[in-house]
Amino acid sequence: MDEEYDVIVLGTGLTECILSGIMSVNGKKVLHMDRNPYYGGESSSITPLEELYKRFQLLEGPPESMGRGRDWNVDLIPKFLMANGQLVKMLLYTEVTRYLDFKVVEGSFVYKGGKIYKVPSTETEALASNLMGMFEKRRFRKFLVFVANFDENDPKTFEGVDPQTTSMRDVYRKFDLGQDVIDFTGHALALYRTDDYLDQPCLETVNRIKLYSESLARYGKSPYLYPLYGLGELPQGFARLSAIYGGTYMLNKPVDDIIMENGKVVGVKSEGEVARCKQLICDPSYIPDRVRKAGQVIRIICILSHPIKNTNDANSCQIIIPQNQVNRKSDIYVCMISYAHNVAAQGKYIAIASTTVETTDPEKEVEPALELLEPIDQKFVAISDLYEPIDDGCESQVFCSCSYDATTHFETTCNDIKDIYKRMAGTAFDFENMKRKQNDVFGEAEQ
């Protein structure tokens, strides 16, 4: 370990593993360490099931009705991949897709007046949907046509809207959309967690709705994908990429100290040895004095023996409960997957309800979601602090990732990755940087 590296990475969460992969592909010498004996950090999948019970201090362990412990891979952080989103792009560019198998999530649902409705995925579904009345549908269709044709580089498509100054509230007004449709559009399509976006320039919202539609167009059922064997497969896929390009991995490796000289990182000390480096990437748990708390998320993992009611017996789905429907500031989400994804025993389902904490009784906040899941065989409640770095790391060369937020997709995580890359490399992130180099010394032969 007593060696000189360009970059040392602490923690094998998804953000850290993707950055480690990119740095290795770009010719950097990388050492990647984790104090845990497993990959994934906060974003790991726990197996066998006995391990999950232990982690949540349920000492009696799983009953026999849960089947074989080894058949379970339970995500600690519930997220899906947008089919046309940035993480899929990263997987394709790096060819990490060859280590993973994905399934399309069967449906996306939205909560309205105590019931759940399928988010329409085709024009026919939209016309048949009970989510809105006849005239509302016509106006909504006009709005969707506007979004589909919108091109930020072609003012002819703006229809009198200025993407940089017109607020989204004004765009909704222009198409005369009612409150329910606005809730549905902002939260189930643009996937905002709160209503803060309404008074911001509309460009980002329009682009988010386009991303949803384009992702949906790829597979038809929903815009989301999920990897077989759980999300823990993602960091491992990128760790393989890093290793192929010469990255060194050490799990179960305690970090005793991060060594600084004149305010700059110069190395990491572990078990009496020092590895030197020019730059350091880590998750917040490794540098508690360089991060601040930015809120909390509650996630309740529920094991069920039945599909969720009114989802047409889907073996995977997402449910969004827009905040307006339950008098909150932030949406509540449910991600459900099952034995069909090799993450649970035969006939079992895993539904994870999550939201940003707003009160001193977080469990009560998630109740509307839990009511949709009854009866629940077993619950595991996790309340996590969200951390963000206190500075950009440019001076110390210590670059810290943000905690995983309450969103049900990876777009915010990818933004964090691109942002850290830019601060480390001094140049904007470009997907081309992730391409495997042809015929290089570490390149794998085609399968």
Rank of each mutant, 00 (worst) to 15 (best):
Y333F: 15
V357F: 14
G13A: 05
V96E: 10
E136K: 11
C17Y: 02
G114H: 13
E374V: 10
T412N: 12
K269F: 01
F184P: 14
L127W: 05
Q378H: 06
V145D: 05
S316M: 13
F109D: 01
T185V: 10
V147I: 08
D405C: 13
G246V: 01
M424I: 09
F431Y: 02
K309R: 10
K293G: 06
G347L: 03
E273K: 08
Y117H: 12
K309G: 07
D391Y: 01
V30P: 04
R299Q: 13
V9M: 08
H341C: 13
S222M: 13
D71R: 04
N73Y: 10
E16G: 05
S403H: 12
L373Y: 15
M82V: 06
V30E: 00
I332N: 04
K156E: 10
L76H: 11
V25L: 09
I321G: 09
M434I: 07
L144P: 03
T194R: 03
R193Q: 14
R292L: 09
D71K: 12
R328M: 04
Q397G: 00
E411Q: 13
R292I: 12
I116Y: 13
N310A: 13
Y38A: 01
I320V: 13
E233V: 01
L189Q: 03
I350T: 08
I303S: 05
Y38R: 02
L144R: 07
E233N: 15
R173L: 10
A239G: 01
L81A: 15
M33V: 11
Y38N: 00
V161A: 07
E374L: 01
I332V: 12
Y111A: 05
R292E: 08
K435N: 07
V181F: 03
I320N: 02
L81I: 00
V181A: 09
F146S: 10
K348Q: 06
A294G: 03
D419R: 09
Y38C: 10
H306R: 06
R208P: 03
E152K: 10
I321L: 06
G186V: 00
P284T: 00
Q323K: 04
E374K: 08
A148T: 09
A353F: 02
R218S: 14
Y172V: 04
I308F: 09
E60M: 14
A445C: 15
N433T: 12
L203Y: 15
L216Q: 04
I116K: 07
P223R: 00
Q200Y: 13
L10A: 04
D183A: 05
K112L: 09
N153W: 05
L241P: 14
Q200K: 00
P322H: 00
I298A: 15
D430F: 04
N315L: 06
T15S: 14
Y387C: 13
H187P: 05
G21H: 13
G267F: 02
Y349I: 14
Q179N: 11
D416E: 12
N312K: 03
G40W: 03
Y249C: 08
F429G: 12
R423L: 09
T360N: 14
Q57H: 12
E388A: 08
N262C: 14
K112N: 06
C335W: 00
V104M: 07
F109V: 01
R218Q: 09
P227M: 15
R141C: 06
I376F: 00
H409R: 05
D416A: 08
S270L: 05
D183G: 05
I308S: 01
T359W: 07
K278E: 08
G85V: 02
I8Y: 11
A345P: 11
E261I: 12
P63Y: 14
V7D: 01
V398G: 08
A445L: 01
S213W: 14
E3A: 08
E358R: 05
V274T: 15
D377S: 13
L10P: 02
V9W: 06
N36S: 08
I298T: 06
Y172C: 07
S213A: 01
V30I: 13
L241G: 06
S167E: 04
P163H: 00
N439M: 15
E51G: 12
D195N: 11
R436F: 15
K210S: 12
D154G: 05
N36L: 13
D151V: 09
T412G: 01
Y99L: 03
R55H: 09
K418Q: 09
A83S: 11
S167M: 07
L372I: 10
N26T: 06
P254Y: 15
D392C: 13
K89M: 02
N130S: 12
A148V: 05
D289E: 06
G69Y: 08
T427F: 11
S403T: 10
M33N: 14
R292Y: 07
M434L: 13
A425G: 11
G267E: 02
P120A: 05
V119G: 04
I46V: 11
K379D: 08
V265K: 15
